[in-house]
Write a protein that binds this DNA or RNA. Structure first.
Length: 297
DNA sequence: AAGTGAACCTGAAGGC
DNA sequence: TGCCTTCAGGTTCACT
């Protein structure tokens, strides 16, 4: 479900609640998600103080006052729900009132913040494509899940020159190349479609065809890198997209879905100034691609 | 070797 | 109403 902007939004929701808090209790309600939970999952987390909630691509990493760190992925349908004690509420009341769990609530972290406030952070994931794994803090970057990841599309590392070198010689379509997490890490089906529309490039075009062997960049690699950075920045600023019932950790909704130019707009008119085309849906490597054949070449 | 498709799992939505 | 099919924001593995 979530792509980088949604994961970043979740991280920003969790951070103020979790950072500095102590995990008083962990409920692990089934033996596995996409992978089995680590051995001693509950034991190794209980009593830890959270020092940082971070993100790499679509992965969340939770850091503690001692090893290990927790690496988590939301898969297609994973989400975190925060329930916090209100200021005037008595602690006992809180636990009693909010103790109901929903279907597919797989993990519950019971937290106590520095000022004594209690809260629960619950991981829910109907499809169970998400997971939680441990890594030793010192070797976190070398963990198999993180080691092969490409450049973050946030910041300025992703520029036309990098796209030029990453895509050189690639015969795969731009759609597939942008989804390849080993090249650019964090894009998913929605934001790849949106970035290609913004840069006016066809998702079917061979990735290597926008590159140059003699020059460091091309107008197309510049346009694509800019479009990717901007669509990701815009989506983060809007709090991500909330499709179906997906909500943020604090229960609020993201608004970026209202800004989609092509995703899920099959048959609708192209939004580009002066373009009379219609958004089409095709299937590439088993996934829907939305684009305008009139202005994306 | 790179590139494509199937598989993992549940739920929502649409057609009949 | 119910049953069936299709589709979904991701990743990995098995093929060609």
């Amino acid at each position: 479900m979530p792509e980088l902007p949604e994961v970043e939004t979740v991280r920003r929701g969790l951070q103020p609640v979790m950072e500095g808090a102590v995990i008083e209790k962990v409920e692990q309600r089934r033996p596995d998600l996409r992978f089995p939970f680590p051995v001693d999952f509950v034991e190794r987390l209980t009593g830890r103080r959270v020092t940082d909630v971070s993100r790499r691509a679509k992965y969340l990493t939770f850091h503690f006052d001692a090893d290990p760190i927790l690496i988590s992925h939301l898969g297609m349908s994973g989400s975190f729900r925060i329930e916090s004690e209100h200021g005037g509420e008595t602690p006992g009341e809180f636990h009693h009132e909010r103790s109901k769990l929903a279907a597919h609530d797989h993990v519950v972290f019971h937290l106590k913040s520095v000022d004594g406030r209690r809260s629960r952070v619950t991981f829910n994931d109907p499809r169970r494509f998400g997971f939680m794994l441990f890594a030793e803090a010192a070797q976190a970057d070398q963990h198999p899940m993180l080691a092969g990841l490409g450049v973050e599309p946030t910041g300025n590392a992703l520029d036309g020159a990098l796209i030029n070198s990453l895509f050189a010689g690639k015969r795969a379509p731009l759609k597939a190349a942008l989804l390849d997490q080993r090249l650019v890490a964090g894009l998913g089906n929605i934001y790849v479609c949106e970035a290609l529309w913004r840069s006016g490039l066809s998702p079917k075009r061979m990735a290597g065809s926008i590159t140059s062997a003699r020059r460091a960049t091309t107008p197309r690699t510049d346009a694509l890198s800019k479009a990717v950075r901007e669509v990701i920045a815009d989506a983060i600023a809007a709090g991500g997209s909330s499709l179906r019932d997906y909500v943020h950790a604090d229960g609020s909704l993201g608004y970026f879905q209202h800004s989609f130019d092509v995703y899920d707009r099959e048959g609708a008119p192209c939004r580009r100034e002066g373009c009379t085309g219609v958004v089409r849906r095709i299937v590439q490597s088993g996934r829907s691609t939305f684009y305008c054949a009139a202005c994306q070449r």
